[in-house]
Structures are given as structure tokens and as C-alpha cells.
Design a binder for these strands. Structure first.
Length: 574
RNA sequence: CGGGACGUGGCUCAGUCUGGUAGAGCACAGCGUUCGGGACGCUGGGGUCGGAGGUUCAAAUCCUCUCGUCCCGACCA
């Protein structure tokens, strides 16, 4: 491609609308332009990079035995009513009526459509397993679209759905997808981790999120430095204290005046106790009903764990009024002894003895409270936020908190959709069995954004070679010089003959502009033809990622660089 | 939906407090000089000051309403 003919409107200054690196750079580098909130046009370079990711996804999905198809984007409400998601999905589902007053929606995901397709066309165990995928534009009317392609309303996604006859087959399919995803993100040249994700009500370890590691990521990950354990913060576990054989002597419960001491810090200072010897009582509103949560004084509650334990849709920390209304105690003096609302405890509390708690009376606390003797709890479970001081639940190793961007998610669905939509097959005994399903998503457009988020410097993007819009950019530094121009044109043609993807900067611009633009758009290799060629017959090959360059004669440039590019792609699994 | 910020040529912004009839830099067009890290000079085109209503002799500026954008929280590929 010739730069002079390309729609590539680069920006010298940072657009005011963009705060996040990838968003800023994609706008500046002329990859995308916003049409309206959360909806973007992909310009030629942005699309080229997206196509690269798509191609890798296709190759690996096909290799894993999945088949590509394409499902409709407009979907009838009836189908969504069958799965009960028409009611459940909420305002993210963009709904509209057509001229016949029929209700429809824009597909935010395709479980309904694919299940409908399969139930009408697959009837026997002989046709299983089957795994179908598409790469398509999705629409989700996000509450707050932001960060450019990172969280758009309209975005490109690869979604796959698998149908298996048995649980064990479904687990094999899940494992295949796990491996395919690992290969996909490896081949994209990204640094990533697969983490255990929150499975909500289904449970089990059959949900993984694939996270691109980047400081600017929206999610917090917990990673073990010593084994392969990695988890989303929401689900992260840690090694629990071992039950000590020798129970310390239980001291008598003692009520003590603590005037005006409400916060943990104030109480421990006043009483001279350690926060590790204090149990705080937090009140949460779980679907509108109050629940008290006990945990050690220096810990924090992980609301998602609480939500899953209580099996509710929403938990929210109660405000002072809600606390008082439900317990009759002003916040700050709450405790489990004689409390009027249900109590759950973080499992750590079950291994504590003789600790301080609120006395459920203004200006009083209890010393030496003990579970079972002084109060009961409904349930004890892991409810706390993990900290870097915690230890790995698998190996006891050191944990590290890091940030990541979710680019893929694999999930074992089980039979929830096949049962709701009555999608089943006949087994070898002639029995009607619901399909066991799985779904597997990759945010294709988000992957490009995440790649930029992970690979950039002050000058611009540093694309991993496999997903760069072009592999090499040839700079003709003097379009008026016939010799230089002829050399640049020769390089361009020769790269094409080698099946490489060159971009020739043949614009009548000053060298500085060409260097700046080349760095900004992040093409991995740059070949410069300029004064050094005119004087010594040398061209310069420079790698964008480490800025290292070599000079070599014109006729050696193409074979040398083509070899480098092939080797690099091969080393990345391409 | 709650909290905050902001809307002025294509882009980045000044001007708003204290009302007096629109500016700068970049970009764009032309000419000349320049030419391996976003050059310089001269000339030129381009703006319903987000929109509506109001106050006033006079509104980008003050008031009311409205639309849109961005950032922080709940959602997710």
C-alpha cells in the first residue's frame, strides 16, 4: 500500500475526548474515528489490525474443530422470551419494534439464536459434539461506554457455542477451547494470563477469563508467583489458617465502655488491641434485606463472594440509616452478640478467639467474644478481599496483584439454555437429552486496543508483528531524488514479491514527519532510504520495539528482513 | 442512574469572572526558502461561539431550559 493513497489521518495533538492510552493512540494514529458515544468507524489501518486478529482466531478455532458461520444481528423478541432473558437482560439489550409492530433486539450475544438453530437441525448424538463460531459485530447498550474500543457499545466479537452429549465430552471441549485461546493470544504476541473467573450460580472451575496484562487494565488479578494459580480478584482465594489443635482458653465475655469510638482504628487505639484481634461487623443490603458480615478488623469484604454465598442479585453496603433501622444500633457499635439480623462470617473469624466486637449498644464494646459460645452464625465462608500479604491457595506461594484487560472468556453453560429452549438430541438408547453447552468469547476489537495498551511508548504504538496492520514501512525520504525514489520503489515491489506486507511512505513530506508518523502508527519494521543511500548505497532497517537499527546494502535488505519477519512469526507460533 | 468537568473554524485551546459585536497555534490552499526526527516567511479560505428561550441599547460572556462529550462508581468481550 502507498501512504499517499491511504486514508490515514494522523493527529499531532492528543484529542481532548481520549484519556486512555489505547484510545488516544488509535485516534492519533488514524485507526478509528468516533461516530457517536461508544460507536466507532474503523479506518483502513484499524481494520487491518482487526483483520489480523480475526485471521489468527479463525485459524485456531478451525484447528480446534470449530466451524464458522454467521448469525443474524437482528433477533426476534420471542426467542428471548423463551429463555426468559427478554425480561432479565435489562437496558443493555437494545430493543425496537419494526413496521409490523413486532418486537426485536440487536444481538448482544447469540445463545438464543444458536440454540434455536441447533435444536431445529441437530437431533442425534451421532452429530455431536459440534462447536460453531462467528466473528461479528455485537451491540450492547452499555451504561457507560468508554476508553474507545475498550468498552464500546458496538464492538467486534468472536463467539463460539459448543454442544456436547455428555458432561465429560463437554469438559473435553472446554479444555480444547482453553488451549485454543492460549494459542490465539500467544500468536497475537500478547502477554496474558488465563484466570479463574466468577461462575456465579453454576459454580465449579469451568470459567476462565483471558487477561492481557497491562497497568491500565480495568480488572485486578491475583497471580501466584510460584505456581500457575491465577484468578480474578472477585473470585480469588487464599491459603486459610490451619486449624490449630490447641484451642486457647476462652476468657469470660467482658463489656467495656468505649465512648465515641466507632471506627476500627479508634477502638483499637483506645483499647490497645491489635486489629487482628478485633472482629468488625459490616451490614450489607442483600436484595434489600440486611445481612451482617463478620470479618477481621483489618480485612475488607469482597462483595461478589458475598453475593454468591447469599445467592442474591445485588449486595450493597448499608448506610448508617439502614444499619440503625434494621438493628436498632448506631453504626460503629454493632456486634454479633444478640444482633437482630442474619449473620455470616468470613472463614478467618472461625479461627479467632477472645476478640473484641461491638456490644450492640452505643459507646460499648465486648472483649473476649467467641463464636458458638457467645453467638452463632448462619454460615462461614471465604468472603474477604485478597491482599498481597496472603498466600496462594494452591501452593502457599507469594501472591501478586496486577492489572489486566479481559479479552476472552470461556464458560461452561451446562443445560440452562438447552432446557429453557427445549433443545435436545436422542442418545444411543433413544432417550431425549438436553445438549450440554459451552460458550466462548473473544473481544476482537478490544484485543487490538489491549495490544496497544500493553505495547506503546511516548512516540506511539509498538505493534506485535502478528497483528500489525503492515509488517514493514518503507520511508522514501526524498521523493524528488530519482535514485532514492527508484530504490524505495524497488524495495516495495520486492517485499510484495516475498509476500510481505509493506507500506511505502511516498508522500512529498519532510523526513521528520515521516519518522514521527512511522513511530506513531507502530509498524514493527522500518526501512529508510535517504541520504545514506545516495552517498553510500546503504538503507537502514530499524525495529520499532527496541529502536535498534542496522545499515545494509539495498539488495540485501529484502532477503534479510523477510527472513527476520518469518523467523519472528514462527517463534510466536504463527 | 448518582458525583465531577467541559462544549468557541478540521484539531488543541485563549477569550466568559468584569457584556461592547471573535482570536492564537496546528491543519488546509498558493508562492518562495528548507529537506535524516512533527521547518520558516508571505498570502489566502474557513466559525449559526452545542441548541432554544430570556435579560439588555448591546450576549461567546449574565439567567433558565435542553442536547452532547469526557472522567469517577454499579455492568461486561
Amino acid at each position: 500500500m502507498r501512504y499517499s493513497q491511504l486514508l490515514l489521518p494522523t493527529l499531532k495533538e492528543n484529542p481532548a475526548e481520549a484519556e486512555v492510552v489505547s484510545h488516544r493512540l488509535m485516534l492519533r494514529a488514524g485507526f478509528i474515528r468516533k461516530l457517536t458515544s461508544g460507536i466507532y468507524s474503523y479506518l483502513p489501518l484499524g481494520l487491518a489490525s482487526i483483520r489480523k486478529v480475526e485471521q489468527i482466531v479463525r485459524e485456531e478455532m478451525n484447528k480446534a474443530g470449530a466451524q464458522e458461520l454467521l448469525l443474524p444481528m437482528v433477533q426476534p423478541a420471542d426467542l428471548w422470551k423463551e429463555s426468559a432473558r427478554w425480561e432479565k437482560y435489562g437496558p443493555e439489550l437494545l430493543r425496537f419494534t419494526d413496521r409490523h409492530n413486532r418486537e426485536n433486539c440487536l444481538g448482544p450475544t447469540h445463545e438464543e439464536v444458536i440454540t434455536d438453530l441447533v435444536r431445529k437441525n441437530v437431533h442425534s448424538y451421532r452429530n455431536l459434539p459440534i462447536n460453531l463460531y462467528q466473528i461479528q459485530t455485537k451491540f450492547r447498550d452499555e451504561i457507560r461506554p468508554r476508553f474507545g474500543l475498550m468498552r464500546g457499545r458496538e464492538f467486534i466479537m468472536k463467539d463460539a457455542y459448543s454442544f456436547d452429549a455428555t458432561e465429560s465430552d463437554a469438559e473435553i471441549t472446554y479444555q480444547k477451547m482453553y488451549e485454543a485461546y492460549t494459542r490465539i493470544f500467544t500468536r497475537c504476541g500478547l502477554s496474558f494470563r488465563a484466570v479463574e473467573a466468577d461462575t456465579g450460580t453454576i459454580g465449579g472451575s469451568f470459567s476462565h477469563e483471558f487477561m492481557v496484562l497491562a497497568d491500565t487494565g480495568e480488572d485486578t488479578l491475583v497471580i501466584c508467583k510460584e505456581c500457575s494459580y491465577a484468578s480474578n480478584m472477585e473470585k480469588a482465594r487464599c491459603k486459610l489458617p490451619v486449624k490449630s489443635a490447641d484451642r486457647p482458653e476462652l476468657l469470660p465475655l467482658e463489656k467495656i465502655e468505649t465512648p465515641g469510638k466507632r471506627k476500627v482504628d479508634a477502638v483499637i487505639e483506645f483499647l490497645g488491641v491489635s486489629p487482628k484481634n478485633l472482629v468488625k461487623t459490616m451490614v450489607y443490603m442483600a436484595d434489600g434485606k440486611p445481612v451482617a458480615v463478620l470479618l477481621r478488623g483489618d480485612r475488607e469484604v469482597q462483595p461478589v463472594k458475598l453475593k454468591n454465598l447469599l445467592n442474591v442479585v445485588d449486595v450493597e453496603l448499608a448506610d448508617d440509616k439502614q444499619v440503625f433501622d434494621s438493628t436498632g444500633v448506631p453504626s460503629g457499635y454493632l456486634g454479633p452478640v444478640g444482633i437482630k439480623i442474619p449473620v455470616v462470617a468470613d472463614s478467618e473469624v472461625t479461627e479467632m478467639y477472645n476478640y473484641t466486637v461491638g456490644a450492640n449498644e452505643k459507646n460499648y464494646h465486648f472483649l473476649n467474644a467467641n463464636l458458638d459460645r457467645d453467638f452463632k452464625v448462619m454460615q462461614a465462608a471465604d468472603l474477604r478481599m485478597i491482599t498481597p500479604e496472603d498466600r496462594c491457595p494452591e501452593c502457599g506461594g507469594k501472591l501478586e496483584l496486577t492489572r489486566g484487560i479481559e479479552v476472552g472468556h470461556i464458560f461452561k453453560l451446562g443445560t440452562s439454555y438447552s432446557v429453557a429452549l427445549k433443545a435436545g438430541f436422542l442418545d444411543d438408547q433413544g432417550r431425549e437429552i438436553p445438549f450440554i453447552m459451552g460458550c466462548y468469547g473473544i473481544g476482537v476489537s478490544r484485543t487490538v486496543a489491549a495490544a496497544i495498551e500493553q505495547n506503546h511508548d511516548k512516540d506511539g504504538i509498538k505493534f506485535p508483528l502478528p497483528i500489525a496492520p503492515f509488517q514493514v514501512i518503507i520511508l522514501n525520504l526524498s521523493t524528488k531524488d530519482e535514485k532514492i525514489t527508484r530504490a524505495a520503489e524497488t524495495l516495495y515491489e520486492d517485499f510484495k514479491k516475498e509476500s510481505m506486507e509493506p507500506l511505502l511512505d511516498d508522500r512529498d513530506e519532510r523526513p521528520g514527519i515521516k519518522f514521527k508518523d512511522a513511530d506513531l502508527i507502530g509498524i514493527p519494521y522500518r526501512v529508510t532510504v535517504g541520504r545514506r543511500f545516495a552517498e553510500k548505497g546503504l538503507v537502514e532497517i530499524r525495529k520499532r520495539s527496541d529502536k535498534k537499527s542496522i545499515d545494509l546494502p539495498l539488495d540485501e535488505a529484502v532477503p534479510k528482513l523477510s527472513g527476520m519477519i518469518r523467523d519472528e512469526l514462527k517463534s510466536m507460533g504463527g
